[in-house]
């Protein structure tokens, strides 16, 4: 039997909103250690890696490892039926054809059950090598979302250039160009407002706005985002999910023809 309970469905609601633009379906790998999802978007340009640790759940039971193919569009619809304060329980039996989502109101007066059919999916896992990145930028996630949105007006791609001085985001298109520079913050009252740059070597990479704007749908999950970059390798855009895990988006850079 598999059963995982979160005291508040808000986290799971936000996770679904953070992946639904990129993934229409995904396999949820459930084991003693928690729930893992690794899936590419349809165009195979980006990769989503989600990890929810079992110890972050209020209750977690997984008697045997399960791979459950889920329709993300349907799952998003189901999670939207939960109030943020509702308790959410995911339940499946061994060799399941279905997964059950149970939402219970804080007063326990309302109990809703939604059953979703699982789908058979081809397993295709990619091996992500351990990488020492040339630049790691930590910055407020809302600021990153704002920059992606603003620069998307100017072109289809955003160039991120990171140096000792700071990080520069730029976009160019037919109507003009724009650039936004962020310096490392000297002192901040609140950690989540800090811009922190850890640079070994300067990096300049260009990424498709469309994907960056999908990644920033994870903004409600965490006040800070971590961007890890090295020349000619995919960007890693990471959001922590409270004390329970993280979501990482990998995006291949654009290259000159």
């Amino acid at each position: 039997m598999f059963e995982a309970r979160l005291a508040q469905s808000a986290i799971l609601k936000k996770v679904l909103e953070a992946v639904k633009d990129l993934l229409s379906e995904a396999t949820f790998e459930c084991s003693d250690s928690g729930i893992m999802v690794q899936a590419m978007d349809n165009a195979h340009v980006s990769l989503v890696s989600l990890n929810l640790r079992s110890d972050g759940f209020d209750k977690f039971r997984c008697d045997r490892n399960l791979s459950m193919g889920m329709n993300i569009t349907t799952m998003t619809k189901i999670l939207r039926c939960a109030s943020s304060e509702d308790t959410v329980t995911l339940r499946a039996w061994d060799n399941p054809d279905n997964i059950i989502f149970i939402f219970e109101s804080p007063s326990k007066e309302k109990l809703a059950e939604y059953e979703m059919k699982l789908i058979n999916m081809d397993q295709e896992h990619l091996g992500i090598p351990e990488t020492m990145y040339s630049c790691v930028v930590k910055m407020p996630s809302a600021e990153f979302a704002r920059i992606c949105k603003d620069l998307s007006q100017f072109g289809e791609a955003i160039t991120i250039a990171c140096s000792k001085e700071g990080v520069k985001f730029s976009a160019a298109g037919d109507y003009g160009n724009a650039n936004i520079k962020l310096a490392q913050t000297a002192e901040v009252d609140k950690e989540e407002e800090a811009v922190c740059i850890d640079m070994q070597e300067p990096v300049k990479l260009t990424f498709a706005c469309r994907y960056l704007n999908s990644f920033v749908k994870a903004t409600p999950l965490c006040a800070q985002v971590k961007l890890s970059m090295s020349a000619d390798v995919p960007l890693v855009c990471e959001y922590s999910i409270g004390e329970i895990g993280h979501i990482r988006y990998y995006l291949a850079p654009k290259i000159d023809d």
Binding site: V45, L126, A208, V233, A252, K254, D256
Partner: peptide, 13 residues
């Protein structure tokens, strides 16, 4: 500019 596939960076397991 062209877009590379993520599979060209991360090999299939």
């Amino acid at each position: 500019m062209s877009q590379r596939s993520i599979t060209s960076f991360f090999g299939k397991k």
